[in-house]
Design a protein around this nucleic acid. Sequence first.
DNA 1: GGAACTCGCCAC
DNA 2: AAACGTGGCGAGTTCC
Length: 439
Amino acid sequence: MNDQAYKLFHEGTLAFADMEQNGIRIDLRHCRRQKKNAEQQISMLELELARTKEVKLWKKTYGDKFNLDSNDQLKKILFTKLKITPPAYTDKGAPSVNKNNLILIDSPVVKPIIQLRQLKKVANTFLKGIIKGSVKSYLHPSFNLHTVQTFRSSSDKPNFQNMPIRDPVMGKIIRQSFIPREGGMIGGLDYVGIELSMAGCNSKDPLIIKDFATIHKTQASKCYALKESQVTKDIRYCGKNSFVFPQLYGSWYEPIALNLLTAITSMKLKTKDDKELRKHLIRKGIGNGDDFTDHIKGVEEDFWNTYHVHKDWQEGWIKNYQKTGYIEMMSGFRCFGVMSKNQLLNFANQGPAFHCLLWSIIQMNKWLKKYKMKSKIIGQIHDDMVMDINQKESEDVLQKAKQIMCKDIKKEFKWIITPLEIEAEFSNKNWYEKKEIKI
DNA sequence: GGAACTCGCCAC
DNA sequence: AAACGTGGCGAGTTCC
């Protein structure tokens, strides 16, 4: 790493130490109540399952060793005893019983098992971890700068970076556990589309730079043959995570089409006019999976015709690695060693995106300490600075954050050639209730 | 009783 | 020709 990168991690470690010490306030009563609640629901589901003939067979087969948590046993019952054909296989060649594949099986045990898994995850991973890690109602997760290939961060004990948010039921239970300090509000300041922004900085593709704030929405509308005005938040999410990022990091239209298609049913996607997406596609003449795959193939071609400058950059980036044996990020970090093509492409954006946040955290923390503010940085999720902001200080803190995150950073990192935008979401109740605040 | 492994699943 | 990246953690399983 160069001197600037060294300094970033040196100061970053110190800022993270402050952040860890600050901690996040926890509603322990809520956690314990919800854990008990989840455990009751688990018992009910287990009883419901026990009444099915499938589980009776399962018990008969395994006797004392019967275990609802054993996927090996589940596979034996479904695929050997009941002779069901496995819908798909894992990378290692075993039949897959993950949610996506299980749901394709016509059996009364499928839905209760999926629900059971989710409840156990809520109780035994998230709530248990939060309760176990809390000291005097404050949780102090670790944030690491030394564990990740791309020079991003990680978090553990518990991992603060994977608290549920997408699933409405899980998200509510877990995120309500995190509450603000007295007189405070909890939430985050996150960079909008920062990874795509980094892609633009790397390749200098004029169209990526021009479109980076709207690209996910645009591509989502193309994938599902919709007007942009019909794109909901969920549909945009699919455009981003099932089309744009996969395209950028080396996937292609066939698996992408499959993912986009299954998302329609699993996320119950509807247009802004509340029309079912499946029916909309049929009206557009995309009636089956093959039609859809063809359609996505066209979207893919358009995508790379549009962003061809970026494609050229990708090829050059790979060639340079083949020549030198390493890649050097815009932020001054070098990655050595054997890397796949997809890794090379991903690392170039993933690292620098986080480094923007890290630099901002350092500056923000210095400022908060200098003026002895009650507001504190309490966590970090790759592109999201999680804070507990004292309401009397909120105006000043939010303005300062915007100044640092969108303006000052461009003086430090001269390679940032795209505009930077942030979004603030806070609540004085808990981390679930957060709502956007305009700044 | 623990290390190493697979699988499933949560986040960005 | 081949085909999306980075993590942490719980549970089951196998091996020593």
